[in-house]
């Protein structure tokens, strides 16, 4: 049977998520560029910057956005190129685990500062 089943209903949510997370990442990039221009320098400088609660929160938001954005993008690539369901599920799982791992690790690093 080769019936095409569609209607998973998460298309809009994912599309919106990618746009919103994209905006967060763009704003964070601008913020970092501004920090660089303002002369933030060396480990001391960065550590001082990161000690602000707002900056930590913003960075946290950035990491979550990055991972979520990447999840949708990478998953779409698997969906486009990998057709067998078993392999695709494995790849999805590995991607998700890796991204969660990265996020956890990055957050841990920030909070350690």
């Amino acid at each position: 049977m080769d019936r095409i089943v569609v209607g998973a209903h998460y298309g809009l949510k994912d599309w919106l998520t990618q746009r919103i997370t994209g905006i967060v990442m763009a704003l964070y990039t601008l913020f970092m560029a501004a920090a660089l221009l303002a002369g933030v320098n060396g480990q001391e400088g960065w550590r001082a910057l990161m000690s602000h609660g707002f900056v930590r929160f913003f960075t946290f938001l950035f990491i979550i956005s990055l991972c979520w954005h990447a999840w949708i993008g990478v998953r779409d690539i698997w969906m486009d190129y990998v057709k067998p369901a078993g392999i695709r599920l494995t790849l999805h799982s590995l991607t998700a685990i890796a991204l969660i791992g990265y996020a956890g690790w990055a957050i841990q690093v920030i909070w350690r500062l």
Binding site: V6, G7, A8, H9, Y10, G11, L12
Partner: peptide, 8 residues
Amino acid sequence: LEDPYRLF
């Protein structure tokens, strides 16, 4: 159309 494939 609200589907990860059909439109998005």
